[in-house]
Design a protein around this nucleic acid. Structure first.
Lengths: 189, 189
DNA sequence: TCAGATTAGTCATTTTTATGACTACCATGG
DNA sequence: CCATGGTAGTCATAAAAATGACTAATCTGA
């Protein structure tokens, strides 16, 4: 039941509609969790029913109306309880790792292509996170912002995201090199 | 359906029993996937029914009998197909990140404790992976092993695991520092 | 000698996550 | 003037992962 807490944590930044939330959780900026829009709408409905978030209708012209949600006191209490409870250890769970694990026995061409693509995607995320970090800290240096800023949670998780994607990119490129070199050595026989 | 492929990939290293597989997928060395024993037994049953793995009974004295599984040709073909298909992007999904995202609004004492503990666990994994890497490459240097070794898949995924845990540890420690310093600044008012 | 850990598994069920198929309406570009 | 894409969602179902409760033997340390 971590999605619900991820949603609560995301809503701490201010009121968001389900649609906006979905954007934030989508491919782009999912720096601390990932979910499909449908999951988020469902979760918001449940959270509202339990009184952990509250929504207000915003009437728009020239665009469908939307409901903006914010975390209630009960919601903050729920987050508090969640934070106090012990966290389960995190694991990498990545199709690509499974494929690389089997690299000795399967065709490496497709794998090399996927690794290369993943490195590209990782670089794009690094750039995106870089922009995001800059926007969050404004004119301040990182040190200064982390000491005195008033909302550092998203900044810290974004830092984790950058580090993850950097490792991701570097490992993919390194693995591509290794696989390519072995392919060449093999071809010569 | 990646667990099945993770199991197939793991069995490429040689025959394993469900129990041994469970060990490999457990907290210790889950360097490319993680699963509970029950999930693995269930998956092995399914894989066997589909002919992707085959098991043979090994009668043991002074210990319960066991079934050792190996990947069949059909299993390798399945892995091949899986590798050729495009991989879905990987995301971090970690309770701790959610908690840090909410760090500005919840009690940080428990969080600091958890981050510290996570850093410790990460360090333990780094050490474990270090030993494992050394065992895999034997007397050879990494470069040499990756060029000429005959089973580099597990080595490469283990490298990814080390990098991940290192980032994990460093980020946890950094975050602890930030939170502690802010707590002090706050206390003075 | 007896409690607790280790080996080796099974069965049933719940929880969580993901997917597919939809509805509507507006704006913009070609 | 109409196809495409963005905004804003809903409903139902499938798939995957996790959990709880078991059996049964042996081996190990206090």
């Amino acid at each position: 039941m971590a999605l619900r807490h991820a949603v609560l944590a995301a809503l701490l930044d201010g009121e968001l509609s389900g649609y906006q939330l979905a954007k934030a959780f989508d491919v782009g900026v999912a720096n601390f969790w990932y979910a499909q829009p449908q999951q988020l709408y469902a979760e918001l409905t449940r959270l509202e029913k339990e009184g952990l978030v509250a929504g207000r209708e915003v009437v728009q012209e020239s665009r469908p109306n939307k409901r903006l949600f914010h975390v209630t006191d009960a919601g903050v209490a729920e987050l508090e309880a969640f934070t106090a409870a012990s966290a389960k250890p995190a694991f990498i769970r990545d199709d690509l790792l499974v494929k690389v694990q089997a690299a000795d026995r399967v065709d490496t061409d497709a794998l090399i292509a996927q690794l290369t693509d993943r490195a590209r995607v990782a670089q794009a995320k690094i750039d995106l996170f870089g922009t995001l970090l800059h926007r969050l800290r404004g004119h301040r240096t990182e040190e200064e912002f982390l000491r005195h800023g008033d909302r550092i949670g998203p900044y810290l998780t974004c830092l984790r995201g950058v580090a993850f994607e950097r490792e991701n990119r570097d490992w993919c490129l390194r693995t591509v090199d290794v696989l390519k070199e072995r392919r060449q050595l093999h071809a010569r026989h």
